[in-house]
Amino acid sequence: MHCHMLTQHLLRRFIPHIYPQLLQNCPAKFATELFTSGGKHRTYFASTMAYRTVERGPPNSLDYRVYFQDESGKIVSPFHDIPLFANAEKTVFNMVVEVPRWTNAKMEISVKGEMNPIKQDVKKGKLRYVKNCFPHHGYIWNYGALPQTWEDPNHTDKDTKCKGDNDPLDVCEIGYKVAARGEVMKVKVLGTLAMIDEGETDWKILAINVDDPLAEKLNDIADIQREMPGFIESTFEWFKIYKVPDGKPLNTFAFDSKPKDKAFALDIIEQTHGQWRELITGRTDACGISLKNVSVKESVGDNKISADVAKSIVDDSPQPGDANPISPEVDKWHYVASQ
């Protein structure tokens, strides 16, 4: 019996009362969870490399962080150390899942935190949750980022006429499985939206898990429109209105609110990967970003650190703890007109 099939069989046989909860959080391949004195660990197995997440601080708290380890146990940066490309042909990309579909906590790679853990966004001292704008509940895709990309705030895009938002490229993964926070997923790119968020360019890459049943049928933006009617329109609506309950105006989009195709999206990825290289090699203003990593040989200054130093960053972070309660207000519906 295949290894992960055997493990799932054993889970069903001996701990059936928690198997459904474990299954709900499994990635496309398989995930196992370990509980140790150092915190909660979740391991993701892919065809060529495994990453494990290390949770620190109590969930739903200002101290909560999700760090990453590679298959050797070394702490790595999901921003700088995880490679952009997942295959030698450079046609499949690694995506770091920050927010599983249907959840509300606005989690993101901390670009200014050492080793760039995932943390929850904070506004006015409070943890940030996206509102449920009827009929959407939480995020309507698995949401995350492409590693080794950066939207340079010093660069004005020739099409949007706006500068970058100082973050890695955002990705909306549109497959059917609900991913887990911290999962490193292999995706193929299908297109992009050009959102303008408070005067900044904020590209949204549309992609699908290569293991999804629809992946063979989806190769470009037109395929989404054919196979998943209404999905792109709902994606535009979600991004347009999601900040309105917080008192913000409707977001706008370049290109007359039309999506761009795969070729255009690949150009944006290539451009932002180049901007990340300028960043990591010190050829542009770092804008407060932490460049600490353990693998990038071209790193400027002393930013390439040893495995021991990287481990000490995690060891010095707050200890794990029980999850804090979440306010029932997070589940409230908000009714927003998109016009």
Rank of each mutant, 00 (worst) to 15 (best):
P100H: 03
P318C: 11
S110A: 15
V300W: 07
D285M: 04
N166M: 05
K131Y: 10
Q120D: 06
S257M: 10
Y176V: 05
F93A: 05
T235W: 02
W141D: 02
I241Y: 00
E227C: 03
I268P: 06
R128W: 01
Q271W: 07
V76C: 08
I224V: 10
I289F: 05
K188C: 05
G191H: 14
Q120N: 14
I269M: 08
P328Q: 03
V330G: 12
L250V: 00
Q120K: 12
L10Y: 11
A179V: 07
A207D: 09
H273N: 15
D331F: 14
K163F: 11
T7Y: 15
I269Q: 09
K40P: 00
D256F: 05
R226E: 07
P100A: 03
L6Y: 13
K119D: 02
D322A: 15
T252Q: 05
F93C: 05
F253Y: 10
S47C: 09
G113F: 02
R277M: 14
E151N: 05
G113L: 13
I174F: 03
L218N: 07
I118Q: 03
T53F: 11
E98G: 05
K112S: 15
G57A: 07
R181M: 04
E270S: 13
W102G: 03
F264Y: 15
F255L: 06
D63P: 05
D331N: 14
F85E: 14
S257E: 13
K304V: 09
I326Y: 04
N142Q: 00
I75R: 06
V189M: 00
E173Q: 13
N132L: 10
C172M: 08
A179N: 14
P16G: 09
S295N: 04
P245S: 04
E198N: 09
C133W: 01
M1L: 14
Q225L: 10
I174Q: 04
K292I: 00
L23F: 10
W102A: 03
T91G: 11
A31I: 06
S312H: 08
T281V: 07
H41N: 13
I205E: 00
P168T: 14
P147C: 00
K240Y: 02
G247W: 12
N87H: 11
P318F: 08
D81A: 12
R128N: 01
E233N: 07
Q148H: 07
K131M: 07
F253K: 04
P27M: 03
H80Y: 15
I326C: 08
V54M: 09
A31N: 03
K158G: 06
E33M: 13
L22E: 13
F231L: 12
W150D: 00
S317H: 11
T201M: 06
K217G: 01
K112Q: 15
D165T: 09
E227T: 03
I232Q: 13
K262W: 03
V54A: 01
N60F: 09
Y67G: 01
L279T: 05
S47V: 14
K258S: 09
V122G: 07
G39R: 11
E278Y: 06
P213E: 01
R277D: 12
V336Y: 02
D121N: 13
N87A: 04
N87P: 14
S327F: 10
D81I: 13
F231P: 00
T156K: 15
V314N: 00
A145Q: 12
I269W: 05
F253H: 08
W333R: 09
P249W: 02
T91F: 09
